[in-house]
């Protein structure tokens, strides 16, 4: 079967790729586009390690067919923060020791950024339920939740 041609936007850049019909966005990001910051933990949408933002919504890259990216705006972990300045969520993860092995971290940061983009002042409960689609086995979530609270305060210009 012939491959499909896809034109999309990844981290602000125009991108074109060819893919087989069953290939997921996660497959293409990692294996075709070389964006390996997005991780595969389960391939079934249960762990959130492959969280990406597609047209403003958090999506599991493993549950999205690559052809569905046509015409969409895709943001991955590589598109968060700037070369001279980490995003406040990234900085808070560092300062608050919100990672141990770091494998789930890109997914958490993508999901947390999307949360703060739409809700700049989430409660602890809102943070916990928003991030309930992201599994972390190392931290027990305590420091992750605190880092998101910290980042929210930073983004509002308040000292945490």
């Amino acid at each position: 079967m012939a491959k499909s041609h896809v034109s999309t936007t990844v981290n602000g850049d125009p991108v074109e790729f060819l893919c087989d019909a069953p290939e997921t966005m996660l497959d293409v990001l990692r294996n075709t586009l070389g964006l390996t910051g997005t991780k595969e933990g389960c391939g079934t949408g249960d762990c959130g390690a492959c969280s990406i933002i597609v047209d403003g919504r958090v999506v599991c890259g493993c549950l999205m067919l690559a052809v569905e990216a046509t015409g969409k705006q895709v943001t991955t972990i590589e598109g968060i923060g700037a070369p001279d300045r980490l995003h406040p969520v990234q900085q808070a993860f560092l300062e608050d020791a919100a990672l141990q092995c770091g494998f789930c971290t890109p997914g958490f940061i993508v999901a947390a950024k999307a949360l703060l983009d739409r809700n700049p002042d989430p409660s602890e409960t809102e943070i916990r339920y928003w991030l309930a689609g992201n599994l972390c086995r190392c931290t027990g979530y305590d420091k992750i939740v605190r880092a998101v609270q910290h980042a929210a305060a930073e983004m509002k210009g308040q000292p945490a």
Partner: peptide, 12 residues
Amino acid sequence: FLDYRMPVASDL
């Protein structure tokens, strides 16, 4: 991971 149910953030 859907059926081998490890704690998520909202469980703790």
